[in-house]
Computed example of a mutant assay.
Amino acid sequence: MNDEQFDESGVVTAVAGAEDRAFEAALRPRTLTELIGQDRVREQLSLVLDAAIARGSTPDHVLLSGPPGLGKTTLAMIIAHQVAAPLRITSGPAIQHAGDLAAILSGIGEGDVLFIDEIHRMSRPAEELLYMAMEDFRVDVVVGKGPGATAIPLEIPPFTVVGATTRAGLLPGPLRDRFGFTAQLDFYDAADLHRIVRRSADLLALDLSDAAGHEIASRSRGTPRIANRLLRRVRDFAEVRTGGVLDEAAARAALDLYEVDAIGLDRLDRAVLTALCSSFGGGPVGLSTLAVAVGEERETVEEVAEPFLVRLGFLARTPRGRVATPAAWRHLGMAVPAGLDQLTLGTDDPS
């Protein structure tokens, strides 16, 4: 939610960029039947919502976890649409005081869906207030300070919290336990990503060839958000360079221009692998040293580049530092050093 702006209560008030808003609105599925991929989650969530609708009750609170870009915000919007309820959107970092959350909850209507993105980043006092609101549909608002402070109970109509997190392990147990349904979103396979790209192209009235769609899907790192972003870049390239022709050659040329290789590695990913293999002989090397070598912040390397490289089996974390695997050397077109010991790989490096 990097482009969103929040008012004093933490509720979204605007999203920067009219084009981005229109693009996202055009591509987001509005119902579970329109959602591509995540078959297990879709079926489970459908049962939860259909049962609640049949009983005429508010659905259980829902926790959505998984890496960025897999559709957590989209699913929150679908939940609100399926139960025909208003959706209120806020973010964990915007709720740093219990009063911030109390201000949001005071405006909740019966059956409303409250979506809290990055819920693990809420402050502890706000979390404790949310416990009571989710379980008892009431909160105690403290007025005043010191010995004269008074707790005023505030009744809240039944509502549904949809929490989204990229780091479920950071959620305290009492908060996790208050969610009636938890969904773990997985990365998408190439076939589902191709269907997503095909659907997006149709919605945007783009004459995209199947081969071009497969090319985009294969470089999208298993993530729909990235697939749609690459589709935009291919569209731009085609409009400027090829007279609007969106074929495989145009897609490949566009993605090469934007430094996205055949399996989705970008400039930063390749810089990390190149530094590991060329500058440090494959490692092990500490994360801070590796970040300096590629000219990026430590957090950027750890949170942006590393997860995908580890998932591909190109990089491993060991007690002594980061290590390039034989697959990384081969992907860079370099000879694998003799005697590279794969048995030392696979243990997380706490640094």
Rank of each mutant, 00 (worst) to 15 (best):
E8F: 08
S9C: 10
T13A: 14
A18F: 07
A18E: 15
E19P: 08
D20W: 07
F23N: 06
A25I: 01
R40C: 00
V41Y: 00
Q44I: 00
L47N: 08
V48T: 08
A52I: 08
A52L: 05
A54E: 14
G66H: 00
K72S: 02
K72P: 03
A80F: 01
A84S: 14
R88D: 08
I95V: 09
G99V: 13
A102Y: 07
G107D: 14
I108T: 13
D112M: 02
V113H: 00
V113T: 02
E118M: 15
E118D: 15
E118Q: 15
P125H: 04
A126F: 05
E128Q: 12
F137W: 07
G144K: 08
G146E: 07
I152C: 10
E155P: 14
I156H: 06
I156S: 11
L175R: 03
D186M: 04
Y188K: 03
H194S: 02
V197G: 02
V197P: 04
S209I: 00
S218G: 15
S220V: 00
R225G: 01
N228L: 04
E239F: 10
G243M: 05
D247N: 09
E248S: 07
A254N: 06
L255W: 03
I263R: 03
L268I: 10
V272Q: 06
G282L: 01
S288N: 12
T289C: 11
G295N: 08
E306V: 09
F308A: 01
R311Y: 04
L312R: 06
R320G: 04
R322S: 14
R322V: 12
V323P: 01
A327E: 09
A328W: 06
R330V: 11
M334Q: 09
M334A: 10
L340H: 12
T347I: 14
T347M: 14
D348W: 07
D349C: 04
